[in-house]
């Protein structure tokens, strides 16, 4: 007897044995199908504090669920599931499992900050979204994607030299993501650039690629920045009850 109201059940809550024989009785499929409960049975009481410990999340506890943020939200206008009010509620009372269901759309905040201006309680929802995306990353809920890898290569180079050299970022990005260096779009772009840019600039670009120049007196600044980031990273991991490891990607 197949379930008529199947669309009302989360697929992961259906426990089914396509083929099963119990004590000589064939109970395959529908005959042995069970439904798991969708009831919430506990709160994660650390969750609000964890988000609050990350930059941007400091004022999450003020929220009273008026919905102004969602009403003004740029992303919500085209993606109804993007609902900062709802996520703030989930975080505040610690419904982690529910929040994680939306982990793939949660990072889509475009930081327009309309919510920041409209919030009557100064929650800074945009900051909360940022903190939440960060939280997902730290907790390991967001596997590497091309965009996070690109970000990392980009940042690493800045940390290393205080500058960005696009060619190198691209090369490393392709290497890390296992892509061929020779991409048709890249080739045509390079050809376009070479034919249009002044020779002097081309020379400088070529030299930079070889010599990897640094910002002047960078090593001192780098030490200070790295130190700060590591300190920050350790604090964040502590707040999130994660084992002490590397800070953010330095």
């Amino acid at each position: 007897m197949p379930i008529h109201e199947k669309s009302l059940i989360r697929p992961e809550n259906i426990i089914r044995h396509e083929s099963m024989n119990l004590q000589g009785v064939d109970v395959s499929g529908d005959w042995s199908t069970f439904i798991g409960s969708r009831t919430i049975t506990d709160y994660n009481e650390d969750m609000q504090d964890e988000i609050a410990a990350l930059p941007g999340g400091e004022y999450i506890h003020r929220c009273w669920q008026c919905g102004s943020c969602t009403n003004t939200c740029t992303v919500n206008a085209i993606e109804a599931r993007f609902n900062p009010r709802y996520w703030i509620y989930l975080i505040r009372i610690g419904l982690e499992e529910e929040l994680l269901r939306d982990k793939d759309i949660l990072w889509q905040c475009v930081s327009c900050n309309k919510c920041t201006y409209t919030c009557p309680r100064d929650v800074v929802p945009e900051g909360v979204m940022k903190a939440t995306a960060h939280w997902l990353e730290l907790k390991g809920h967001t596997p590497d994607s091309p965009s996070t890898i690109f970000d990392r290569e980009f940042s690493n180079q800045i940390f290393a030299t205080g500058k960005v050299e696009e060619g190198r970022v691209l090369r490393r990005f392709f290497a890390s993501t296992g892509q061929a260096l020779r991409q048709p779009w890249l080739e045509s772009m390079v050809i376009g650039l070479v034919s249009r840019l002044p020779v002097k600039m081309l020379l400088r670009l070529g030299l930079s690629a070889v010599l990897r120049p640094k910002t002047r007196k960078w090593s001192k600044s780098r030490a200070a920045i790295t130190d700060y980031l590591q300190q920050q990273g350790r604090a964040e991991r502590r707040a999130l009850h994660l084992s002490a490891g590397e800070g953010t990607h330095v």
């Binding site: 009831t39 919430i40 049975t41 506990d42 509620y89 989930l90 419904l95 529910e98």
Partner: peptide
């Protein structure tokens, strides 16, 4: 029922 999440709750 957590009426904002629209799910029943049984909390200790």
């Amino acid at each position: 029922e957590d009426t904002l999440v629209k799910r029943p709750i049984t909390i200790p």
